[in-house]
Design a protein around this nucleic acid. Structure first.
Length: 284
DNA sequence: AAGCGAACCTGGCTGC
DNA sequence: TGCAGCCAGGTTCGCT
């Protein structure tokens, strides 16, 4: 999403911003639209699942998509750079909550059916201490994620691997889909205690190394493929992500295990209220 | 302290 | 056709 927004936002001035309601998951900050109008976006970044537009007045526009949030970019009234599947877009104007008119002619609309997303303005200097962002864990694609770091997180943990990987305070940015996919690829049961893939002396096992690798690989492949995009959840450029076609286990309950050397079947269980998809035969 | 379930909100799908 | 019930990508809160 950041990659899609960058060309139309970075280095551009926000001509106007409009909020069509008072809140999403949280109320919009005070004088939200007024504070954004006329500001230039110095850079369009991302940290964990937060989009961060760095503004020229020292504030950062922090945006989270929640579960159903999406952006639509239109240029002169037309959808810009429609992807192969652009015709499948069915935007619901009812849920268009925020509109940015950008210098350069792009109109960027934030649409969010369930309103679990939010936007906030936070001083750049306060990002490190702000309640929303202070406890964010390491980036899974950066240099920080190593088997040793994973071991430090998981050592002694009784919580299942599934829950440990979803904990944004440790590794930030893995959601339900990618946790399921990474565990399948690593051949690890989502029910296994996180601490069980760490040696007693705190050193990573081969399992922990494999999991570290597969976390990176699945995310890299997903970004390359254009993201996950389920159902009506579209990309910044309006096209739908391709990676959904590549899920091995997510939402594939009842399918034969995609591992060719395995005769198992993909199961669905519920862990801490979330669906987990996995093969109990080859994920141990 | 850790871990779990409920809550937030809306809409789509399934089954009766 | 109508309607109840269940499910959904994320995160936080409060209760064991």
């Amino acid at each position: 999403m950041r990659r899609g927004l960058q060309p139309v936002m970075e280095g551009r001035r926000i001509l106007s911003a409009t909020a069509n309601r008072a809140d999403l998951r949280f109320p919009f900050p005070e004088r939200f639209a007024v504070r954004l109008a006329g500001r230039t976006i110095i850079s369009m970044g991302r940290r964990a699942k937060y989009l961060m537009a760095d503004l020229d007045d020292g504030e950062v526009l922090v945006m989270h998509l929640g579960m159903t949030g999406r952006f639509l970019i239109e240029q002169s009234g037309a959808i810009q750079a429609p992807g192969e599947f652009a015709q499948t877009i069915h935007r619901l104007p009812l849920h268009d909550h925020v509109v940015f008119e950008m210098e350069g002619g792009a109109r960027i609309t934030y649409n969010d059916v369930r309103r679990f997303g939010f936007m906030d303005l936070i001083p750049r200097t306060a990002i490190a201490t702000h309640p929303l962002t202070k406890d964010i864990g390491i980036e899974p694609l950066g240099n920080e994620l190593t088997p040793e770091r994973l071991a430090a997180f998981f050592s002694g943990k009784a919580a299942p691997l599934k829950a440990a990987l979803l904990d944004q305070r440790q590794i930030a940015g893995l959601g339900n889909i990618y946790v399921c996919e990474a565990l399948f690829r690593a051949g690890l049961s989502p029910r296994r205690a996180a601490g069980s893939i760490i040696r007693k002396d705190g050193a990573p096992t081969a399992r922990a190394r494999k999991l570290t690798d597969e976390i990176r690989l699945v995310l890299q492949e997903a970004i390359e493929a254009g993201g996950s995009t389920l159902r009506d959840f579209a990309h910044a450029d309006g096209s739908l992500g391709y990676f959904q076609h590549r899920f091995k286990v997510y939402d594939r309950e009842g399918d034969p295990c995609p591992n060719p050397s395995c005769a198992g079947v993909v199961e669905r269980i519920v862990q801490s209220g979330r669906s987990t998809f996995f093969c109990a035969t080859c994920q141990r």
